[in-house]
Amino acid sequence: MNIKVLGTGCARCKSLEQATRSAVKEMGIEVEIEKEEDIVKIMGYGVMHTPALVINEKIALSGRVPSVAELKEVITKYLS
């Protein structure tokens, strides 16, 4: 399983990365979390609104920073 945080390095992108890390830690699962800052690659996912969250190459979220609790729901949903 692989989670990518897409964002060009703005404050909201960093908070999404942090929230994702805490969510994964609280869930106690083994996941690789990457930060994707290359705009061309970000566009490759068809995302127009950063920050975005890509789980197993699928866009799970874009344009917002949800709470850790909601992130856990989202991650669980895309895991199954």
Binding site: T8, G9, A11, R12, C13, I39, G46, M48, H49, T50
Partner: peptide
Amino acid sequence: TPFCSCSAIPLFLGF
């Protein structure tokens, strides 16, 4: 439309 200046680039490209 939700907008922040940090997403100006992806929006511009997307448009």
